[in-house]
Amino acid sequence: MATVKRAPAGAAVLRGDITVAIRNAVMSELAEVGYGRLSIEAVARRAGVGKTAIYRRWSNKLEMVLEIVSDVAGRAVPLPDTGSFAGDLELLMMIVSKALQHKIASQIIPDLMAEASRNPQIAATLEKALRTHQQAVGDKLVGQAVARGELPAGADPELAVDLILGPLYWRLAVARTELSDDYLEKLTVAVLAALRSSSDS
């Protein structure tokens, strides 16, 4: 009969399924009540765990939210390689627009941006996670286009990301305007033209 290994007496075993339940509960609470009204008690209740399960993982609300949001914000978006820069752009914009329209994301993002203006730790965490991710996206997208000869070697990856994400964030997260059927196609043409002209200047 196989022996079951037991954790040393007194050792806290952090079960993965409980951690996942807590993370999901945090995101749902953030979407429902915002950071200001979010409480450890409400997260524990929603996750179906005791408060001690949360305090074993994080010492306070801010630490918990920062780690979970940073993880979500820094998650890699699948970077497309369709064989053309225009195709890559349009596919990436479709992925981003779907993410921004997700029920939970569309409620959490504006709230956290507002909270970041009041809380330097939240601002720094979001900036670090987003900047690292955006740089990776820009470098790959523009690097592929340069390698194919579609953009000149001087094309700016940071500008590319600003041009791609800025309009989508404005329309979907700020103005909350629905995208027309041909919006992504028009935006792709505009971004291409802007990057080519900025590289020529």
Score class of each variant (00 low, 15 high):
residue 39 S to I: 06
residue 39 S to Y: 12
residue 39 S to W: 07
residue 40 I to G: 00
residue 41 E to D: 10
residue 41 E to H: 14
residue 41 E to M: 14
residue 43 V to K: 00
residue 43 V to E: 00
residue 45 R to F: 05
residue 45 R to P: 01
residue 46 R to M: 08
residue 48 G to A: 13
residue 48 G to K: 08
residue 50 G to C: 03
residue 51 K to I: 04
residue 52 T to P: 02
residue 56 R to M: 04
residue 56 R to H: 08
residue 57 R to V: 00
residue 57 R to K: 14
residue 59 S to L: 12
residue 59 S to D: 14
residue 60 N to E: 07
residue 61 K to T: 01
residue 62 L to K: 11
residue 63 E to Q: 14
residue 63 E to M: 07
residue 64 M to E: 05
residue 64 M to F: 02
residue 64 M to R: 05
residue 64 M to P: 05
residue 65 V to C: 11
residue 66 L to E: 07
residue 68 I to P: 01
residue 68 I to C: 02
residue 70 S to M: 14
residue 71 D to I: 13
residue 71 D to P: 02
residue 71 D to V: 06
residue 72 V to A: 11
residue 73 A to R: 12
residue 73 A to V: 15
residue 76 A to V: 15
residue 76 A to L: 15
residue 77 V to D: 13
residue 79 L to I: 13
residue 79 L to A: 09
residue 80 P to R: 12
residue 80 P to T: 14
residue 80 P to H: 13
residue 81 D to E: 14
residue 82 T to D: 07
residue 83 G to Q: 10
residue 84 S to V: 12
residue 84 S to A: 08
residue 88 D to N: 09
residue 90 E to M: 15
residue 91 L to W: 05
residue 92 L to S: 01
residue 92 L to D: 00
residue 92 L to N: 05
residue 93 M to P: 01
residue 95 I to T: 07
residue 96 V to M: 14
residue 96 V to C: 10
residue 96 V to Q: 07
residue 96 V to T: 12
residue 96 V to G: 03
residue 97 S to G: 09
residue 97 S to F: 04
residue 98 K to N: 15
residue 99 A to F: 06
residue 99 A to T: 05
residue 100 L to S: 10
residue 100 L to V: 07
residue 100 L to H: 13
residue 100 L to G: 04
residue 102 H to Y: 09
residue 104 I to D: 10
residue 105 A to H: 12
residue 105 A to D: 09
residue 106 S to G: 11
residue 106 S to C: 13
residue 108 I to K: 11
residue 108 I to A: 08
residue 108 I to Q: 12
residue 109 I to K: 02
residue 110 P to V: 06
residue 110 P to S: 13
residue 110 P to I: 07
residue 111 D to V: 03
residue 111 D to E: 10
residue 112 L to P: 00
residue 113 M to R: 15
residue 114 A to F: 03
residue 115 E to P: 04
residue 116 A to Q: 10
residue 118 R to P: 03
residue 119 N to L: 07
residue 119 N to S: 08
residue 119 N to V: 04
residue 119 N to C: 05
residue 119 N to H: 05
residue 120 P to L: 08
residue 120 P to K: 09
residue 121 Q to M: 06
residue 122 I to Q: 00
residue 122 I to N: 00
residue 123 A to N: 15
residue 124 A to F: 07
residue 125 T to R: 06
residue 125 T to P: 00
residue 129 A to W: 05
residue 129 A to E: 12
residue 129 A to S: 09
residue 130 L to K: 09
residue 131 R to M: 15
residue 131 R to E: 15
residue 133 H to N: 11
residue 134 Q to H: 15
residue 135 Q to S: 04
residue 136 A to N: 08
residue 136 A to L: 14
residue 139 D to K: 13
residue 139 D to A: 10
residue 139 D to L: 11
residue 140 K to D: 06
residue 141 L to I: 11
residue 141 L to E: 04
residue 141 L to Q: 04
residue 141 L to P: 01
residue 142 V to H: 02
residue 142 V to L: 12
residue 143 G to R: 11
residue 144 Q to E: 10
residue 150 E to S: 11
residue 150 E to I: 09
residue 151 L to G: 00
residue 151 L to N: 01
residue 152 P to V: 08
residue 153 A to V: 14
residue 154 G to N: 13
residue 156 D to F: 02
residue 156 D to G: 06
